[in-house]
Design a protein around this nucleic acid. Structure first.
Length: 413
RNA sequence: GGAGAGGUACCUAAGUGGCCAAAAGGGGCGGACUGUAGAUCCGCUGGCUGAACGCCUUCGAAGGUUCAAAUCCUUCCCUCUCCA
């Protein structure tokens, strides 16, 4: 079908705006899109990645998916690895000064990081760059010139710096350099668009300022909302252990999605799935009018997400498995296998505490004893509440620890 | 360089000689319940010992005083505020 130029531009704008929190500014974006359609010159779309946490979770995929949309429309994505800045540690949102990483750690993380990102990005349409390429050669003299464009007051506008200062927390001088370097990256790349979370507002805007200083057209700043983790309150992050990893196994991924509170389900639909926006809204409406049960709603979300990372077959299977395990309380099929060598058994028996230690989920025996006394341990569906019990363990015995951990015992040797 | 405040468990934070393995809240874990790993309620939350209320280690670090130290003293490290 033949679209007019106007229609193409509006279509692109609509698509790219889905789920965004803020775009600074939309007119600039429209101008750049128009130029693309007129001249065929793609936009350079940049996002920087801090390689301090090597595991990608759904929180990261919010902007990655947006980058993918740019790619699908024909634009050039630069996956910028902040190997140089990573050694400083982005102060964004931190209540405390971040620990600095050494070069080796940063590079290793960068590798695993980009590998995982290609679960979402189109590898052929992505350029990977390291910001050390240009930042490492900056001299002290250069730095003086660059930093002279910015004032201390300007730096202190930043909420997290101001807050830390007000709270009597330390702010390292080197942390001022982070936004400056990130802004300089935009100059080095001649970025047309930079993507980031809303927490990146300050850093992203610095890029615009810096580009003006270097007589470049300022980049469009596109901010995506921060994704709450499974607790529904805090930003998804590995350190808070409220994350859903793109590498999580289907069952775990499904379960973690099911553990999010109801109020963020719609947001997850918008930011993490390709379900058309009208459908997302109609589902949410049905939940509000009690036409759709919140649990069913959430199960659909879980299926959508598992489908993206593991395919539709896995999603279907996992969904049934979940019902069996938690709604009907049956033993799940794919429990982790726990190998026990026959030599470790005495008269075919093993002490519970010893067995639990084998699972590797508790490191201290006091913790195990507590777990048992509180009734969190089941063997073949029977609760073991005395830690003095010796258990006979035939091959294939089913061990359940707490709500979510299941083991199938395999005898070896 | 000067003056003052502070560093307590995963986090916030109380405790200023014995009643302190250390209040309270958050988080986490377990149980009950059910709508799911959601909500609510209850319990647990340093380690060791096949378990008694027995031992060991922990309140920035190292020493010291004392029958007894998170608490007092000395030195050191770190942070904040004000002044220069």
């Amino acid at each position: 079908m033949n679209m007019s130029l106007e229609e193409k531009i509006e279509r692109d704008l609509d698509l790219l705006s889905r789920g965004t929190e803020d775009i600074i500014n939309v007119d600039d974006l429209r101008k750049k899109i128009t130029r693309y359609h007129q001249t065929g010159q793609p936009m350079v779309v940049k996002e920087g990645f801090d390689p301090s946490a090597p595991d990608i979770h759904l929180g990261h995929t919010v902007t990655l998916r947006k980058l993918r949309q740019f790619q699908d429309l024909g634009h050039q994505v630069v996956f910028l690895i902040g190997d140089f800045t990573g050694r400083i540690g982005d102060p964004t949102g931190k209540k405390n000064t971040r620990k600095q990483l050494n070069e080796e750690e940063v590079l290793k993380n960068a590798q695993t990081y980009s590998d995982q990102a290609f679960k979402i990005l189109d590898r052929d349409k992505t350029v990977i760059k390291f910001n050390s390429t240009w930042l490492k050669d900056i001299t002290f003299a250069d730095l003086v010139v660059i930093t002279s464009h910015f004032t201390v007051a300007r730096m202190m506008e930043r909420e997290d710096f101001a807050k830390r200062l007000a709270a009597g927390k330390p702010v390292g001088l080197h942390e001022f350099l982070y936004p400056i370097m990130q802004a300089y990256d935009s100059v080095a790349l001649r970025a047309d668009v930079e993507l980031g979370g809303t927490d990146q507002r300050f850093n992203l805007l610095m890029g615009r300022d810096m580009q003006r200083e270097y007589d470049q057209e300022p980049q469009v700043v596109m901010m995506m909302p921060l994704l709450e983790g499974t607790d529904g309150v805090e930003k998804m992050s590995k350190s808070l252990d409220n994350y859903i990893g793109v590498h999580d196994l289907p069952f775990e991924m499904f379960g973690k999605v099911m553990s999010i509170p109801d109020h963020i389900v719609e947001k997850y639909f918008i930011l993490l799935t390709d379900v058309p926006i009208e459908d997302v809204q109609s589902l949410a409406r049905k939940v509000r009018t009690n036409e759709l049960h919140p649990m069913k709603w959430k199960k659909q979300l879980a299926r959508e997400i598992v489908t993206i990372y593991h395919g539709p077959a896995a999603a279907e299977k996992t969904s049934e498995e979940f019902d069996k395990t938690f709604s009907k309380k049956e033993n799940p099929e794919d429990a982790l296998s726990l190998a026990i060598s026959r030599g470790e058994l005495k008269d075919g028996k093993m002490w519970v505490v010893q067995l639990l230690l084998k699972t590797g989920m508790c490191t201290s025996k006091s913790e195990i004893r507590r777990l048992i006394e509180q009734g969190g341990v089941y063997l073949d569906g029977e609760r073991i509440s005395d830690f003095n019990t010796d258990l006979s363990l035939p091959d294939g015995t089913f061990l359940r620890v707490g709500k979510k951990s299941f083991f199938r015992i395999t005898l070896v040797g």
